[in-house]
Amino acid sequence: FVMESGIHGIVITGPNTGGKTVALKTVGLLQLMAQSGLHIPCESAGLTMHNAVLCDIGDGQSITENLSTFSSHITNIINILDQSDGDSLILLDELGSGTDPAEGMGIAIAILEELKQKGCLFVATTHYPEVKEYTDQTEGMMNARMTFDRESLKPLYRLEIGEAGESCALSIAKRLGLPEHILERAYREAYGRKVPKYEQTIPDASFPDTRQDSLPAKQSHSTVPKLVKEKAVKQPADTRSQRFHVGDSVVVYPQKKIGIVYRTVNEKGEVGVQIQKKKELINHKRLKLKVPASEMYPEDYDFSIIFDSVANRKARHKMAKGHQPDLTIVYEKEP
């Protein structure tokens, strides 16, 4: 990594996972090691002293601080611009990202111009072709790239100063098996209208159909569970067991005792009936409706008055008003 005489800023470009951020971190780390009196891992080096090493690297989004990816980057950069001067080293990762590409590109160029005016040394990474072009045309700035093997579609993790890099997004997506119809649409959207100057190695027009260098097309074997609609079990519209509702007065055979339904029929065909304050589960075939609840009680009647003890009802009433640590409700054991 070399910043020639008269160069104040370097803009690094290249594919994702190509090593741009690692290169940026390495510059900052070695600078701080040298200024701290530590040996750095190289045969020889010439480093300048800086009054501050200021960086914006990584995603600082925060829900608690109400910061999105973009706003966290801008907040950091505003602080960096306030604190830096001509003796500072500035490191900026993915400058202008996280927002509308056109506005993000404009902000990136404006920030680089401001740093250039300050006279400090700075290194930034980006994917914007317009930023590459700006850097190439601006005195005191230089492009750099992370090398990439287009045959194997693998990064080489080597930094080359003086040339702008390519993102190679379509090539990487193709190798990873992105469906061809999506690649074809992406190609048309990316290159059908305008070809940026610094995207020099443009995929061939037949790019989506050329797969000899790519990985085999992936078969769809989704591990995402499928939602299966449960088939509704048809119940008889009006079975005898379903005629009994809570509060109904019934006759229990063969004893011919009068009781009140406190629970509707269960899966065994048993209905809960209270007979003289004793709760029992009785087969629905032994019951005969005497008077339906709708004829004896209001629609919103509280049946706990009939089926629950006075102590339980009083305790429940107090609990409804607030927490009562000393109160308990004891339910009668089900038959």
Rank of each mutant, 00 (worst) to 15 (best):
I12D: 00
V22W: 12
A34C: 08
A34M: 11
P41I: 06
G46Y: 07
D56M: 09
D59W: 12
T64W: 02
S72P: 01
H73Q: 14
I74R: 06
G104T: 04
G106D: 04
E114A: 13
K116N: 09
C120A: 04
L121K: 11
P129L: 12
T135V: 11
T138L: 05
M141G: 00
M142E: 09
T147M: 14
D149F: 07
S152T: 14
L156A: 06
A164V: 07
S171K: 06
I172C: 04
A173G: 11
L176N: 15
I182T: 09
I182R: 08
Y187R: 05
A190G: 03
E199D: 10
Q200L: 08
P203F: 01
D204I: 06
Q212E: 14
P216E: 13
S222F: 12
S222C: 15
T223L: 15
V224H: 04
V224M: 15
A237I: 13
D238H: 14
V246S: 03
K256G: 14
I258L: 11
Q274L: 14
L281V: 02
E295G: 06
Y297I: 02
I305M: 15
I305D: 13
K314F: 07
R316I: 06
M319D: 03
D326I: 11
K333W: 08
E334L: 08
